[in-house]
Nucleic acid binder design. Sequence first.
DNA 1: GCTTTAAAAAGTAAAGT
DNA 2: ACTTTACTTTCTAAAGC
Lengths: 204, 186
Amino acid sequence: RLRKWQERIRTKDAGERNLQFALSEIDRMASALGVPRSVREVASVIYRRALNEDLIRGRSIEGVATSALYAACRQEGIPRSLDEVAEVSRVPQKEIGRTYRYISQELGLELKPVDPKQFVPRFASALELSEEVQAKATEIIDVSAEQGLLSGKSPTGFAAAAIYAASLLCNEKKTQREVADVAQVTEVTIRNRYQEQIEAMGFR
Amino acid sequence: MSGPADSIEIQNVVASTGIGQELDLEALADDLPGADFNPDNFPGLVYRTQDPKAAALIFRSGKIVCTGAKSIDDVHDALGIIFDKLRELQIPVDDDPEITVQNIVSSADLGHNLNLNALAIGLGLEDVEYEPEQFPGLVYRMDKPKVVILLFGSGKIVITGGKQTDDAATAVEEIVERIDALGLLG
DNA sequence: GCTTTAAAAAGTAAAGT
DNA sequence: ACTTTACTTTCTAAAGC
């Protein structure tokens, strides 16, 4: 009797400690990513739901915590790329993506594909670009997406190219390297997306 | 009348079989020229046939997996070559080992560009995986036939998971119908 | 879950010329 | 800037960790 009771307390304590660890990790990563408190709360809710639905079995606590935060950022409309999330996590990017797909499916999050426009304010301010450039980049994304150029393309690369193009059009030029660095894509990707977008805008 | 169904091409067939005889893979690796056997990495011995081009994984139990063939006939031909090679080495092989097709991978072309964002929402987010940051294709799991379809912006698609020859054709017919019903087929 | 094998799709990336 | 190579995703069996 006593042994069973102690075991229950032990598992309860272990579970409690694991939950506290996960929540503190979400907090630490959220701070490193500079996302608001509301996103951390959404991430915590997602993590607790995953815990209640027994989705953590066979997966690492850190992996589920990171994926919950990645999902929360998307749900709140201020997405971080998997690259950015992986930088502040000790879990490899591949596992974060796989775990995200799993919990997203099991919890029925039904998150829409990431909209490249959601990266514009953050990337543009990191590059100290004006509101005018941001508005232009947003327009470029809308017009080129409307013409079907977005299908299959990485949202960060698409946003980076639009910001690069907008910086040229507004006489606030940033180099491809500068934009590539903040968006964490290569110059080659910016060049490729940029060419298509300029053509879609009817410039050239 | 050339439609998407006519563009279907089988790209890979995976099948399993067994010779009904245990094997000494160490000895087989020495006797079979071109055989790759690294038991530390993987328990199967890898043997490749040139014509038809295929790769076989041969296990200690005598069970064999054949992959890479372009048709079901090629699977039978490739395995036939392997059975004969084993017989040449004085290894008893069942007369007519049963060969089971486990997976057929096909490609096809819908002939129109696809708006994958609209398709993800239209087909139902619960049945769709579309993460262009990780992979450019939209993943759609179909129940009947039970296959997985990868759809790309170009309109090219991949059908995998099918076991019947006509699964790909049925799946293409079905996906075209669903996309068309959404008004998303050019 | 992982390990290995094959194949297509298209995007992204890195290395070498 | 160009090409080449390689990695991402889906599927499936096999034996064993």
